[in-house]
């Protein structure tokens, strides 16, 4: 379209490959390669092994994976509920009220995750809400961090939702609660599942706030990856990273399957 000559096109493609492959494709490939190796002291890794994976699905690593999964699922479900509720309530408010509510729920996106971690730590380390040292403080922080994203995607979807469906339903005699359950939420379902996938992925990879908060018995996968690489076990860390990526991808894949089944238009 833009470049018509053959050489021009090839120049563009070569430029693209030269930039794209080393910057984006190579890092992921390198982690994958390292996760199957025992040494890397030359151009390429050596000593092929699957031992890191064998270790990654046992003991501490397995526990970190389940910790991450439980945290991510819990945080996503709560965030989706609160975020959707807030988005629906905001849409019913007037222009001013909606702006205030939207701004409030956007705020956690702008605040650094480390600061969210610090704030939660300060607030919940003292009675009456003593959560520090329990898993709940981690889950709570994750929920705060992903609620903003849930709210953002749902309110964007609500803005795109044509009011004519709601009005058609109302003209047929459906009360607002019936319209919400039978028309609005089903029509929002694709966006809701997309938001759920986003929340899950964010929570799975969350490190900043978690580093401030995690108790010894609730160590999510990213923290374990950090402690592994920090003490020099780069290959174990890579295997754990691949497990983390795979789990995230699987969840996203599952969610996108629901999405395609749920999108009607």
């Amino acid at each position: 379209m833009l470049v018509h000559s053959r050489t021009g096109k090839w120049t563009a493609w070569v430029l693209f490959t030269v930039l794209f492959v080393p910057l984006f494709a190579l890092p992921l490939l390198v982690i994958l390669a390292a996760s199957f190796s025992t040494h890397w002291s030359g151009a390429f890794p050596s000593g092929p092994t699957t031992a890191h994976y064998a270790a990654a699905v046992r003991g501490e690593s397995l526990q970190a994976l389940t910790t991450s999964l439980v945290t991510a699922v819990t945080a996503s479900v709560v965030a989706l509920t609160v975020g959707t509720w807030a988005a629906l309530a905001a849409a019913a408010l007037g222009k001013k009220g909606k702006r205030v509510l939207d701004a409030l729920f956007m705020l956690p996106v702008a605040v650094p995750s480390v600061v969210v971690g610090l704030a939660v730590l300060v607030a919940f380390s003292q009675p009456p809400m003593l959560l520090n040292g329990t898993r709940w403080i981690v889950i709570l922080a994750h929920t705060v961090l992903v609620t903003a994203f849930a709210h953002q995607s749902v309110s964007a979807a609500l803005r795109r939702l044509d009011p004519m469906y709601e009005q058609a339903a109302a003209s047929l005699g459906a009360r607002p609660s019936y319209v919400l359950l039978r028309v609005k939420l089903p029509l929002l379902l694709p966006s809701l599942t997309a938001a759920a996938g986003l929340c899950f992925a964010l929570s799975m990879g969350e490190l900043s706030a978690t580093m401030m908060l995690y108790p010894p018995d609730w160590m999510p996968l990213p923290v374990l990856i950090f402690t592994a690489t920090d003490r020099g076990s780069l290959f174990t860390g890579s295997a754990l990273a691949v497990v983390l990526m795979a789990a995230t991808l699987l969840a996203l894949l599952a969610v996108s399957r629901i999405r395609t089944r749920a999108s009607y238009r």
Partner: peptide, 14 residues
């Protein structure tokens, strides 16, 4: 208790 039909039909797609 009114019936209404609009230009864009507004059938529930789901």
């Amino acid at each position: 208790g009114i019936g209404m039909v609009v230009q864009q039909y507004a059938l529930f797609p789901h």
